[in-house]
Design a protein around this nucleic acid. Structure first.
Lengths: 194, 194
DNA sequence: CTCAGGTGTTATCGCCGTTAACATCGGCGG
DNA sequence: CCGCCGATGTTAACGGCGATAACACCTGAG
């Protein structure tokens, strides 16, 4: 009886996150509400609470989904730069982060939310670990200075994130965006190699 | 009859922004609602709409207030570094920005909102103009390269903002925060002088 | 003094998250 | 095969939210 609408949805949890992702792409954070997501799944709002302890947990799950999507983008783009020096790959990661933020600004607004719940699967693609792996290549063999690693990671992440949000909110012109991305990432590269 | 509560408030517009600032300090963005602000002023929610076309405009006014507060902090701190080289003053500005974000995280969440309404008074303290003035000192006399200026401004602002939000959301330990601020700003300084 | 407009009020609407009480489905022990 | 019970859905309701309409009052210009 797969043709008839069943009373039990079967995989509502995943369906809710899927619908949340679609709503986030379309309407941004304001579209990601318990009632709207439930309606998009053809289900009552109260049904959500059988699968998530609160609406915030559902939104956090959608945000985690968005982070995974971005991370996949980053890994894909990075795979085309395999073998290049670490500074080049780091730049690729930064450009990928910024490109995603500008291409999917509404989805990105979820990405940059503080993570309330830690990701349930620690082994899936993760931007921070990726950055760390590349930054580690700057360290001399056998003696990693954790503080230097942390500084480089933070510079890379902070400048990419800050640049992304400032461009998204205050620089509409695509050409100006490109020039600023190039100019800033050049300077960040200098700071990273110092 | 100043002692008796008057029917007409008299300066409700300013009082609403004042109350909004207090609520923002106390409860963050969630506390800044039309109804709560109106209640804090002893006034009905509908009265707000006599002074602001929408609740978002009121919140934007509170956000602008928060930016002015932060800018005053920055100018005050900067006045103690008068005469020092531009790179030192720029660092002072960055440290001030980050310190404010970490000292008043809830108020800062308003600061970093996209500005819907342009500030009504263009002559009051403004962080972007301040950064620009200092960055201009890097340019050789008589020939300012606007693109280089924009890149330096953007690097300064993006790294400070990104660092602030990442530290606020993900690095609770004060000592770790200090080390990261110092380490990252060192590298940003290198990038700025390049 | 009058009256028009600025500034307040209450009542109401629709949406939001959340909970309680109830209904149905589906599988497992008898 | 039956019955039951837990998982998963439903509807109804509460309080808070932004916003608007209709009404009341206060104040100052003529």
């Amino acid at each position: 009886m797969s043709g008839r609408a069943r009373y039990h949805h079967g995989a509502l949890s995943d369906a809710l996150v899927d619908a949340g992702e679609a709503l986030a792409r379309a309407d941004g954070l304001d579209g990601v509400t318990v009632r709207r997501i439930a309606a998009a799944c053809g289900v009552s709002a109260a049904a959500v609470y059988r699968h998530f302890p609160s609406g915030d947990h559902l939104i956090a799950a959608v945000a985690q989904r968005a982070r995974e999507i971005m991370a996949r983008d980053m890994f894909a783009r990075l795979s085309t730069a395999a073998g290049r020096p670490p500074i080049d790959r780091l730049r690729e990661v930064g450009e990928s982060y910024i490109a995603f933020a500008l291409a999917e600004p509404r989805l990105f607004s979820l990405v940059s939310m503080p993570m309330t719940t830690p990701p349930d699967r620690a082994d899936d693609p993760n931007a921070a670990d990726l950055v760390r792996d590349i930054v580690l290549e700057f360290e001399p063999a056998g003696e990693v200075d954790e503080q230097r690693v942390a500084s480089r990671m933070m510079l890379a992440q902070a400048s990419a994130h800050g640049l992304a949000v400032i461009l998204r909110d205050f620089v509409p012109d695509p050409q100006a965006r490109e020039q600023l991305i190039a100019g800033v990432l050049d300077r960040v590269g200098v700071g990273l190699e110092a």
